[in-house]
Structure formats: structure tokens, C-alpha cells
Amino acid sequence: MAAVTTRGINLFLSSVFAGLLLLLPAAAFAVASVPVHEGGQLAWWVWMLALFVFTFLLGIIAVIAGVGGGVLFVPIVSSFFPFHLDFVRGAGLLVALSGALSAGAPLLRKGLANLKLALSMALIGSISSIVGAMVGLAMPEKTVQLLLGLTIMFISFVMYRSKNSAYPKIDEPDALSRALKIYGIYYDEHLKKDINWQIHRTPLGLALFILIGFMAGMFGLGAGFANVPVFNLVLGAPLRVSVATSVFVLSINDTAAAWVYLHKGAVLPLIAVPSIAGMMLGTKIGAKLLTKIHTNMVRRIVIALLAVAGLRALFKGLGI
């Protein structure tokens, strides 16, 4: 009886949540359709309030769908709010950075995030992230929109297809990972035992982190969507270690790119702070709802939402 009641409550919550998710783009389109040469008729504080509420909902969705808030923020906010893409990308980096900074300490303490794995990948990733930010801010807006649209659509495809491996089996670690002493042990709460892990294909992983850092800097995206599959599927780190270490890498790479945006004047506290606050609050609520919501359904809707935002950016880039 209790199980039936719980299932009923979960189903109800999932339906309400799915409805909310479907309303989100509609509400955003309504906000976006206000003829404000770009800001005009609505008071600035109404936009800030809308941004806070919007990022709060994005934060809830991001956790439940298992994606980083940063990757949702840039395509969706740039589609539906009147801010120039420069400021949205600057705010997007800070949203991802603040989330990573606040999540980082407990993950490191538990031994889930691995400092040596992160430092090895972040050094090269942060350099390419700086280059990506400089290229992205120098490009014409339409070109950035076009590339952003293509990238976001690719990300939604990867998210749709990706199948992570909880405990990849590594027969032999490669020479570079041995030299860099990248291996570890963590306590798995699901299996209730210690798990030893090591990695392989380190040179390939390093090459991929150059690309990921570049994209993160160029588009102001938190790059968890790409870090996790590379750690997990390419390098062979366990999924929990991959997710936790990705947060740590993100804090370094996004710091590097954020400084370029700060020096180019592409960070407005007026836009960045409500975004950070909304996303962080939403993430906390999302974490509490995580066990009560049908995550697969939410994840599918988020992937669809991301694809729509990507398509919208693509059309903007093409001038349609």
C-alpha cells in the first residue's frame, strides 16, 4: 500500500515537473517576444527577476537530468533573453565556475574527485580554454551563434546516445598514466566497498581535453557534458570518479576562460549574479527532488529542449 502511494506521488510529481518543463520554453518565448529593443519597455529589475526564476528552474532541471547547468544556460538564455551573447557567455562561465567551486570541496574530501587526474588534464585544457575564449570573443556574433547552434545540437545528440560505464575494466594502464601516478581508490556507496581504479589512453585523453577546453572557452559552456565521457569512456575511470573529477577540471578551465571574458568587459555583475544565485539555489532543490522524479523522462525532455535551443541559435546564426 505504502509502495503504491509512493509510486503515485512520484508519478504525480513527475507529471507536474514534465508539464513545468514543457511550459518553460513557452514562457521564455513569451518573455522573448516583448518588443524591447532589447531591454526597453520592461524595467531592468523585471528582467533580473525573470533571469533568477529562469535559472532557478534550469538549476532544478540540470540536476535531475544529470547535466551541468552551464551547458543549458548559454543556449537557452541567449535564445530567450535580450542580453548580447558576449554577456551570456561570460555569465555562463561564472555559473559553471561557481557551481564547480561549491561542489568541489566535498568531492575532494570523499576521494571521489582525483587531484592528480584533474591537474594532468586541466593544465593543457586551461591553455586551450584561454585560446577558445579569445577566438570566441573576436569572432562575429553570427558566426559564434552558428557554431554554438551546431555544437549544442551535437551535444544533445551525444547526450541522447551516450551510455556511460559505471566500472570500466582496465587491463593495463598506459606508460604516461603510470609516470603521472594517476590511479586511486574510493569507497563506493552503492557497492559498499572500496574500488581501485586506473586509467589508459592518457595521450588521447589529453588531446581531447585540448578540444574540450577550447569549446568551453569559446562558448562559455561548462564542459561537464564532454569531460565525463572522456574520463569514463576514453580513459576508463569509474563513472563516479569521472563526474567528480570533471567538476574539478571545470573549475580550473573555466577560471582561465573567465579571466579573458573579464578583461574583454564581457562580464556584467547585473546579469551574472542573479544567474549564479538562481542556478545554485535550483541545483540544491533539484538534488532534493532527485529521488522523487522520473529522471529518464526529464532527461529526454531536456535533450529535446537543448536541441530546440541549438536549432534556434543555428537559425540566428544563419540570419533566419
Binding site: S102, G104, L108, R109, G111, N114, K192, M280
Partner: peptide
């Protein structure tokens, strides 16, 4: 099995500084 802490000393140092720095940052 009881949960054991497997983070090394350097990692715990980083975590302590990060914990303080991020809380102060939000304030």
C-alpha cells in the same frame, strides 16, 4: 564495510582551502 577516506593529504588541503574560499565567495 565502513566508509574510509581515501583522499591524500594534498587533496585534503586543497579541499579545506576551496571550502573556505567558495563560501566566502558566495557571501
Amino acid at each position: 564495510m565502513k566508509e574510509a577516506v581515501h583522499a591524500d593529504r594534498v587533496q585534503l588541503t586543497y579541499a579545506s582551502v576551496l571550502g573556505i574560499a567558495s563560501t566566502l565567495g558566495m557571501i
